[in-house]
Write a protein that binds this DNA or RNA. Sequence first.
DNA 1: AACAACCTCAACCGCATCAGA
DNA 2: GTCTGATGCGGTTGAGGTTGT
Length: 210
Amino acid sequence: MAMKDEAITTKKSTSSSVNKGAWTTEEDERLAQVIETHGPRKWKSIATKAGLNRCGKSCRLRWMNYLRPNIKRGNISDQEEDLILRLHKLLGNRWSLIAGRLPGRTDNEIKNYWNSHLSKKIQQQEKKRRRGPKAQVCNKVQETKVAVQLEKEDVKVSEEATSSEAGELQTNVTSFNADDQFFDFSSEGLTNMEWMSQFLDVNDVLCWFS
DNA sequence: AACAACCTCAACCGCATCAGA
DNA sequence: GTCTGATGCGGTTGAGGTTGT
């Protein structure tokens, strides 16, 4: 949507002193300039330094989702889509975590993509699956496998529960706490994307043969 | 051509967490 | 231990574009 790059009258504009709504190119430039000098932190002061009538939050969001370097915009590739689907299956709505595994993509973009494209796709697939008895069994088996894996993590954590961090790490099936380290496979000579794809493929295969 | 319905995505909001005083 | 401000996250909204009738 190219129109959103342009200075359009503010969305949700209010009579309050703080500017809200769509960003103008001028605002973008000023924000980028200040961030270049002072770095992307202390957003409130960045907003002030840039002379923007915006709250810090708004500046941060604009930077993270739009101005940040190396942001990939537009078409999500098939490979990326596949990875999103798989990661979502594993992690749920942990958009920032999912985005962290897709270089150049933002959590907001992935969330939007999910809500507008993939959630519908999933619903359709689910409907189809429900018609197939083998698929039902497969789903059950896979769910169980994931649950067992997560329970293992749980037990591990309980054993190490002497540290205060352990409490944080303590997980259950519904709130799986997968942090960056958990998904860092660089030591295995693989990119995270490669590892995850392999991991999930193996799981899918196991599912069919179990 | 005109209108309605639907879709997309940038941006806002509220809440949770963290760090420093 | 408590307070406060900064930051980050996920859910939601709504303007503007697209598609269908």
